[in-house]
Design a protein around this nucleic acid. Structure first.
Lengths: 344, 344
DNA sequence: CCCTCTCTCCAAAGCGCTTTGGGTTACGCG
DNA sequence: CGCGTAACCCAAAGCGCTTTGGAGAGAGGG
């Protein structure tokens, strides 16, 4: 059933039927009801392809999911981010177009999405310090929203965590507990957020006159294994760290495993603070319980970030001349059972 | 730049330019090269919206991501599955349309995708025993592919693991190691795959005359917390299990945590076998290492499954009268460090 | 030399919707 | 009674592509 048939069956023009269904005022209320009833009865729903061509709007947002590293891993953090964004898109009638690309192919993907007009806007995630995608998208004139920032975050819209403050505060907490040998298991420091977290970490150490030890600082893709291996090596060294600051709950799980296998107790022998993105299946258990969460953590829901980013992007699409929207979120610092005073 | 402008600039008709670019034989090779060069120079790429309307093909596949449970969790397993499928779609020029829906809204989502012709086919994941989506899609006449099966998997295309055999074999291994008190931490048994796994588990026990204890059998959304809590409760009971069979590596991590917190050693005091979907950031570390993987596991890459499902779906789309394609995969049983002889 | 193919290319008709630019009717008002 | 103005509705023109049904020009065959 298409518009033509529907309008013929009603004895009305396509114009009128279209207007009736799309809520335009030029049609009598009585007619509108009649049309709606008929449309419903015939199970009519407009062909999106035709509608998109006619309106010039794709009613779709492009997301690009990079496959990271040699093994082309999929970051589970993206799943929750996308879920948050997807909720907003669904509510507003937009589709989410997802494209998987190898780490080096993302610019091409954005270029293509933009040039063949298959989306109304795109989401940029995990920018590097000097991310080429931003200049590209500005040049192409596509509305876009960045989750995270670059080193020069002036002329575009973004939403980011206050990463420096978050990690500075977390480091301060460890220092307050008496820890001096603190390891940083960071994400890839080509990414801006990781760089900022490191800055926060180093600032806090410097403020107390504690030297940062390069052996205790790592920067890798944030897998469980990474946490396990890195922590294992450090714990087996002659001067093991007494505390770990970890950039995600996933490698933190690996750290906990390494600690446990050595017969040490997390929160007593070794302290761990991680960043908690509030991942769906990796809940930092016991957040509301009296005993507190498993991990002491800087906390901010990646899903909420997805929602917020989507909302901003849709605002920009509706209003292309809107000035950049920039939103900086503070993180919570949650005290859990993974931290304690430094052992003597 | 659109077709009209491009063909005007070349002094050719739109027909010829279109044909030249799409590889039709009715155009002289010399002309084709000239057209391609001009298209490239002008950075022309056809408007997908127009192309889709003209061809009647959406060049897109619909995926529906259900948000499970009260908290609308996002299953990270979907991320890897989608990544696998997305690789294939990208290669074949298809877009991936992703829609997030609350657990009860998925039928509506499929109906809508199909009726407004915004996709050429849809992927169905995690079917229940008697999943209504299948009848719906058959009625709507949309090509679809099911990852998993229902209780009556005759008339449609699917790809699934041999779940009964996998869990039967895993249970046999535990029995061979002398375990008699074996717990099953299963996924939600409204889902077909979970039901089959339970069947495999029960069959193996029955074959050895071991009674299944309902207290040791759970069925829930497969979070880390679930594994932690369930294992904790069981371990604290008067007759704790000596082994756990767990439906995913994520709750298995929770089980390991519960074991560790009680001062017990995984693989010595308590054995764990889990199903390993080979999740990106949750690699069952050490698969190729001499010491073996961390978890003994039934193993099958969910990402490879995504690829396979996508390939089958595209085959069905290209050839609508193709008979159902059904593919059953065996799992590997990987011996790791999480299993050992039952303690006396 | 004429006829028939084959090669190339083109004009125009969709695809199914939205939207522009009227047209008609009914009504209120002077 | 005539005219202006809402209120409704319609025909037709796109949107930018693909595809159908030729048409013109050479080439080859008799």
């Amino acid at each position: 059933m298409n518009l033509k048939q529907l309008s013929a069956s009603l004895g009305l023009s396509q114009t009128t039927v279209s207007r009736a269904l799309n809520g335009y005022p030029e049609v009598r209320e009585e007619t509108r009801l009649r049309v709606q009833a008929a449309a419903h009865a015939a199970n009519y729903s407009p062909n999106t392809r035709a509608r998109r061509l006619a309106t010039g709007r794709a009613m779709a947002i492009g997301h690009v999911m990079p496959l990271t590293g040699r093994e082309e891993l999929v970051n589970p953090i993206f799943a929750d981010f996308i879920a948050g964004a997807g909720e907003v898109y669904a509510r507003e009638g937009y589709d989410l177009l997802l494209r998987m690309v190898p780490a080096d192919g993302s610019e091409a993907a954005y270029r293509q999405m933009a040039s063949n007009a298959s989306v109304d806007g795109v989401m940029v995630q995990a920018p590097t310090l000097d991310d080429g995608r931003i200049a590209l998208l500005q040049e192409l004139g596509v509305p876009f929203m960045v989750h995270g920032r670059t080193a020069h975050p002036e002329r575009y819209s973004w939403m980011d965590l206050a990463n420096i403050r978050a990690f500075r505060r977390a480091t301060d907490l460890l220092l307050d507990l008496g820890h001096r040998r603190i390891a940083l298991l960071n994400g890839q420091e080509t990414l801006d957020f990781a760089r900022r977290r490191r800055t926060g970490f180093e600032e806090a150490l410097a403020a107390r006159g504690v030297a940062a030890n390069p052996f205790w600082m790592r920067s890798e893709v944030m897998t469980e294994q990474y946490g396990y291996r890195a922590a294992g090596e450090m714990l087996d060294s002659s001067t093991p760290p007494t505390a770990f600051l970890v950039s995600s709950i996933i490698p933190a799980i690996g750290v906990r495993r390494a600690v446990g296998e050595r017969g040490l107790r997390t929160g007593r022998d070794v302290s761990i603070i991680c960043h908690d993105d509030v991942l769906s299946y990796m809940d930092n258990e016991g957040v509301t319980a009296p005993e507190g969460p498993a991990f002491t953590a800087t906390r901010s829901s990646i899903r909420a970030a997805g929602r917020r980013c989507a909302e901003i992007l849709l605002t920009l699409i509706d209003n292309p001349s809107h000035p950049p929207i920039q939103d900086l979120w503070e993180t919570d610092l949650l005290l859990g059972r993974s931290t304690g005073p430094a052992p003597l």
